[in-house]
Design a protein around this nucleic acid. Structure first.
Lengths: 152, 152
DNA sequence: CGAGGTTCGTTAAAACTTCAACCAACGACG
DNA sequence: CGTCGTTGGTTGAAGTTTTAACGAACCTCG
């Protein structure tokens, strides 16, 4: 072979590992903080997406795509959220295969309580720790990643 | 209340979501790429840490800390890696409670095969997509996060 | 129309992670 | 020395996610 592996240089290596470790710690922390509401960050993100949608509902497939989750995973999670009465499922009239996941009043209300607390956590453990420039760079980096990897 | 929640402004919101989505996609991609070697990114990271350690071995607790994992999770994962003969456990003489996790020859060899492929994935789907400055910012951001959240 | 491919969502089982409890060994201290 | 609190690691059960397969509904096209 003419060109060997292009290893990461030492600085890149350090940055990459910082990202892996920092993300693990951050997600664990945010999860912990949400536990008092009986939610994990994954549940929380589902509720948020629903709360922002027209009529506070989304089709399962659409929701799965926005969260980059498998449909199967979403089915299970929404099943739990439904058991907790935070979400309701209704069938879709225009496409009989389809299912709407809709935020209940209780779900919306729980979200209203959890959101300020969660956002404060995101600030305290991430946003407020770094310069606006560096945080903006974070956004650019992961926009590029998402763009590159594409839908699925 | 005098001071309401300090919500994220629109740009921060966008950056935060880009990070969540981008990370989900990136990890899924890297996992996919490693599947051909029968590994997930978590297994891979374990093997790497061992490969870099003196005598290619680490104490279980030390390894768990470096990966920010629970000891229980590590016990299970190393159990599987041991069943696959990629890792071997030996008891520690100086501390009889202790257990060394040690990379086997097969484990090291698998890593040698997987590493170039994995690194290429990290480059292609992250490092090479962004400016060195932005990538460096990523490192700073997550250093700050790790530093802030602390050991455990 | 209707055959054949695709999408939507679910299901059951397997794989993995978390949770809670536990035991053995260590170490500090009276 | 012996007690007590801590650390290292494992265990089994419960909970979550992945995998693979499936059926129903949709869509295209002859």
């Amino acid at each position: 072979m003419t060109t060997g592996t292009r290893w990461l240089d030492s600085e890149q290596q350090v940055a990459w590992r910082a990202y892996l470790l920092g993300t693990a710690r951050l997600m664990a922390k945010l999860d912990d903080d949400l536990r008092q509401f009986g939610l994990g960050i994954n549940d929380y993100e589902i509720l948020v997406r629903l709360s922002e949608a027209p009529e506070r509902r989304l089709r399962m497939a659409e929701l799965a795509d926005r969260l980059h989750q498998s449909r199967s995973r979403l089915t299970h999670t929404v099943g739990r959220l439904e058991a907790a009465e935070l979400v309701r499922r209704t069938s879709c009239k225009s496409d009989k295969r389809g299912v709407w996941a809709e935020l209940t009043e209780a779900g919306f209300s729980l979200l209203e309580h959890a959101a300020p607390y969660h956002v404060e956590g995101v600030r305290e453990n991430l946003v407020d720790l770094v310069s606006p420039e560096d945080f903006a760079a974070l956004g650019r980096v992961f926009d590029a990643v998402s763009e590159h990897i594409g839908q699925r």
